[in-house]
Design a protein around this nucleic acid. Structure first.
Lengths: 222, 222
DNA sequence: TGACCCGATTTTACATGCAATCGCAGCCCG
DNA sequence: CGGGCTGCGATTGCATGTAAAATCGGGTCA
């Protein structure tokens, strides 16, 4: 998520609030993929003028959460299976890079945090708590990328995550929870051992398997 | 009729023209890194109203060509040596991915085009034609990424190239032309042989060497 | 019955007004 | 002579007006 300045309370731009609200509406399904983002309609619905709504929609288009149809305005983006596969090809190499850099940059603190997260993930899987499991999964990946020390990698993987969330509005991404746990253990083991190459390979293999699942489901669905 | 005339026959959005003009002004150095992008001033300079200028500046910020300073408005982005190194770390894995996918997707046509480009590159190097050499270099990489069949990779590498161009406003990126040619030959050989893994490795090695040069120069400059 | 045309309505995109805010320059005071 | 303050000017961000255009509906004609 794009960090909003919270230190100064006065720093409250309406356009930012609208943008955040629109993201929320998209991810909750209130604005499903394909829905038209009519500036006047949204302005009335959110009880603000058209200017900040216009700015917000423009930003959503730039963030690839919306697409600009030729002359019909903007619509909520629809991330199809094929595009999701392409995104996962990119994600594979980026997560691999993040893991490698994390080994080279980070220390024991990262390993500790990853161990905790992995334990949470295992517990959530045992109790079949899907929300907690998903949260731990996301946290595991976020810890690695934020430890990698490369702002570009963090930004791009944040974008990837956003696109994946959007795709999940239409496509079900069900990875076997056991496989994901095994993969995460392998990544953690490599990081713990300080083996950057092994960490990169393990991270790439993890995403590769997820992508294979996606392609499999895409072909089955098609 | 200042400078807003564009060749588009049908669609003429003022904001797009302004955006393109601003990019041009940035890359030609008319707006150097750090220059303030004052909306009223630019509006008067380009003889349009503030609305399209505002939209254009917003887009430049999203494209990372400009940065939003807390309360001073937007300024042309300054890509420092450290950031450029981070970008090249990303570029390394993305170019590697593009090369691998290109081998898996493309055919003889790509090899032919790459060979031609390489010959142009060699000729330009022999005659010390820097502009032609740079053009051939860029074309080589563009051919590969556009043959990879992954729109995300193309988009991200285009962004990388934009950032690199911007960085070159302040940092000199001088790679030994001989080394670049050798690297390109190695990439082409791997693609020609249909060896995806070798192509990925060669592409990564190429960018890795460029990054090493950058780091070396950054340390020397610091 | 089906395709086409036409007009009303909505929407986009640009222009402009306006209040709050921030930077900066010059001035006053210690 | 230096530091802090105040007033001015400029800029940002929001609100609103307006012209062109395109969609969409209904109605008409073959």
């Amino acid at each position: 998520m794009a960090g909003v300045n919270e230190t100064t309370a006065a720093r409250t731009r309406v356009a930012d609030a609208v943008c955040e609200r629109l993201r929320e509406m998209i991810f909750t399904g209130e604005l499903p993929p394909g829905a038209r983002l009519s500036v006047p309609a949204l302005a009335e619905r959110l009880e603000v003028s058209r200017s900040p709504v216009r700015d917000a929609v423009l930003r959503l288009v730039q963030e690839r959460l919306a697409r600009e149809e030729p002359r019909r305005g903007a619509v909520v983006a629809y991330v199809g299976a094929a595009e999701l596969v392409a995104i996962y090809e990119v994600r594979e190499v980026l997560e691999g890079l993040a893991a490698r850099l994390a080994v080279e940059n980070a220390g024991r603190r990262l390993v500790r945090a990853l161990q905790e997260t992995l334990e949470d993930h295992e517990a959530a899987t045992r109790t079949a708590d899907l929300a907690a499991s998903t949260e731990a999964d996301l946290r595991f990946h976020r810890l690695i990328r934020e430890a990698c020390g490369n702002a570009e990698v963090v930004r791009l993987l944040d974008d990837v995550q956003t696109q994946v969330r959007l795709a999940m509005r239409t496509t079900t991404v069900t990875s076997g929870p056991r496989q994901a746990l095994d993969d995460h253990r392998a990544i953690l083991t490599a990081i713990d051992a300080g083996d950057a190459t092994a960490a990169e390979q393990a991270a790439r293999a993890h995403i590769f398997r997820l992508r294979a699942l996606l392609q499999q489901q895409a072909e089955a669905g098609a």
